[in-house]
Each structure stands twice: as structure tokens, then as C-alpha cells.
Amino acid sequence: MILSAVLLALIAVQENPAADAPDAAPAAPSSARSVTADTLPKVVKIFGAGGLRGLPAYGTGFLISPRGHVATAFNHVLDASPNILVVLDDGRRLTCKLLAADPVSGLAVLEPERDDLDLPYFDPAAFAPAEAGDRVLAFSNSYKVAGGDEPVGVQRAVIGAVAELDARRGRNAAGIAGPVLILDAPTNNPGSAGGPVVDRAGLLVGVIGRELKNDATNVFVNYALPAEVIGATLTAMMEGEFVASDVAPPVFSGGPQPADLGALLVADVVRRTPAYVELVEPGSPADAAGLRPGDLIVLLDGELVPSIRLLRARLAAVEPGEPVDVVVRRDGELLPLTIAVPDVEDLREPPAELSRPRR
């Protein structure tokens, strides 16, 4: 709460028009404060699955309908559905379920159990196109600065560039198509993903993305997904008209597969078959790591894997010889495991599944 108050105070101090660039249009001294006051009631705190190493159990979102639909980032926190806790700006608590998600863009929409709400919200169709040099405000519950009716954190930033994102999460490519907004402030922290970015008029400009590192420099990237690109997606998700894309992250030929780790998955019979483990080969890397039949693989190197298809694609992008971190759901609990990936010369050729036992 103290951190949030300091951030708000800094915004008010920095709003002195004399400190602006000479060619900038003069702004009212209270404009940033007014925008902040108008935006905070539309921002929510999200609590769900997590709490393991490197996996915070909290996040950020924003309201996109008066009924209480919430736009946020698609991540492990939402694995708590249908019991995701959403805390409004005034401290009221809502129980929500995951309504729709897109692993490619990294977006998700939540729906509350209640249908009697009348809340302030952002209209995803009423966005502001963004350009390099635009001044914006980024809102988020980074580092869990708020848990009840405390305001989330606010950061003042400038859009440094609108460019393609060449980044990764862990050992996997980011898989984000199209340009993003590169920000000059440290906006992308634990718990920040899903927070709104608004312009000086309070219009939605973008959504803070998941934590990613620049593929060339290995430095975390501060960026947001442009609202003008994702607005239609959020609307379709909310209205039940969204169809998830099957586009997968880049895959290099000959990459590891579950069989190389000693794991047999259930038959991939539908487009989004969950990644359940059917068999673990004794003495294999998966066996040594503690993987067991019946486990549901939900995360690979911090990325959600909602289907066998995406698990195979993301695993194939892992460098042979490097360990891979997975999180499995077992008996209602999330368990972190680290599995050694064989060196390239030890990969099965051609890639193949383990044999299923005869019944």
C-alpha cells in the first residue's frame, strides 16, 4: 500500500507542465491524477494457483464489461478455475472461472459467478492507437503490492518503439505474433501480466504481457500487447465466439519428445487433449525426476501447456542436454519437477512413442 501511494505521489509531482518537453502540448496539472482515479476502479487483483518457486499465485486484470468479465494474461494462476479469486478496487471479492484463453497471444477472459453486477469497465472496442513517443500509465499488482481494497501500482512510461518481439520464456520461443509496445519503464514484473496500459486521456492502449527475455541480450523486456490488435480477440472471448488458434511455437527438427524423457502420454484424440501421463518408463529421466502415471502436465518452463499438441511443440524447442522444468497436477496439488533432457545423440530417431502395454 505504501508503494502504491508513493507511485501515485510521483505521478502527481511529475505532472508539472514545465517539466514537459518544449514541443509537447500543455496538459492540465491534475490530468494524470484524474486518469489514475478513473482507471483504478476498472483494475482487479487476481489470486489463484501457484506459490511454487518462480510461480507467484497472483496477477492483474481489468474489467471489460459491467457484468464483471475480466481480461488478463493466460498463465498458471488461472489453473485454479473455477475458483479464481478476483478482488475489486473497493475490496469486494468475486469467484470467477476461466471463460476463454488463447495460448498464442497469451490472453484470457474470466467470468464471475454473479450476474447482478454493474461495474466500471474498459470497452475493448474503444482503444487508442499507440505510437512511439506516446506517454502512458501502466497499472499492475506487481509483487502483490495490493491484496484487498488497496490500489494497485501505477507507473508512468513512454512507448519507446512499436516493434516485433524477439524474445523467449525459459528455453522456449515467446510465440507472440505481430508488433508489441516496448516501454521504457520496468513494467513486466511478477504479478504484472494482464494489467492495463492507458494513454493520457484514459483510453486503453495495451495489456502488460508475460515476463519474457530478449533472445539476444537475455535481458527482461518491458512491453505491452497493443489494444488495437487484441481488442477484437477480447470481445470474441467475452461473447463466446472465440476459436483458439492451433499455431504453436517454433519447432526445430529432431527436437526432444515425451518418449525421449521416458513418458507416454494418453492418446491425442481431440484438438485440446490434456497432457495426462499414461506410462513412465522405469529408469528413464522422467522416472528419476518423479513423474508418475496419472500426472497432468500443466506447465513447461513456466508456460501453460493446455494440450498434448502444445506440449510436444514446446518440448521440441528445448535444447537437447538441458534440463526442463515442469509442473504437474497430482491428487489436487501442483508439484514442480525438473527432468533431464538427453543429449542430441541419445534422442530417438525417428521420434516415436513408447509402446502401450497390452490389455
Results as ranks from 00 to 15, higher is better:
V219T: 06
F242W: 13
A232W: 15
E239Q: 09
L225F: 03
N222M: 01
D246Y: 13
V229W: 08
F242T: 05
V219G: 01
V243L: 12
L225A: 05
P226D: 11
A232I: 10
A236Q: 13
T235F: 11
M237Q: 15
A248M: 09
A224Q: 01
M238P: 08
S253I: 10
P249I: 09
L234F: 09
N214T: 03
L225Q: 06
V251K: 08
E241Q: 10
L212D: 01
N218F: 06
F242V: 09
M238A: 14
N222T: 03
M237G: 07
L225G: 05
A244F: 12
Y223W: 04
A216C: 04
V251A: 14
T235G: 12
N222A: 02
F252W: 12
N214F: 04
V243N: 14
S253R: 11
A227H: 04
I230K: 15
E241M: 09
V219A: 06
L234W: 06
M238I: 02
N218P: 02
E239P: 01
P249W: 11
V243S: 14
L212F: 05
V251Q: 15
P249Q: 13
P249A: 15
P249Y: 08
F252V: 13
A232S: 13
E228H: 07
K213C: 07
E241W: 02
D215Y: 04
P250N: 11
L212G: 04
D215C: 04
I230Y: 08
S245I: 07
E239D: 12
P226F: 04
P249E: 11
A248T: 11
N214W: 00
D246C: 12
V243E: 15
T233F: 15
E239W: 00
A232Y: 15
N222E: 03
S253M: 11
L234Y: 05
F220N: 10
A227Q: 02
A227V: 06
T233C: 10
L212T: 04
L225P: 05
V221K: 00
F252N: 15
A244C: 10
P249R: 14
P250F: 09
T217S: 09
A236Y: 02
A232R: 15
G240M: 03
V243M: 13
L225T: 02
P226W: 00
L212I: 03
G231V: 11
F242I: 06
A232D: 14
F242Y: 14
V229A: 13
V229N: 11
A236W: 08
V219E: 08
N222I: 00
S253F: 07
N218H: 01
A224S: 00
P250G: 06
D246M: 14
F220C: 05
D215W: 02
N222K: 03
A244H: 12
A248L: 12
V221R: 00
E228Y: 01
M237Y: 12
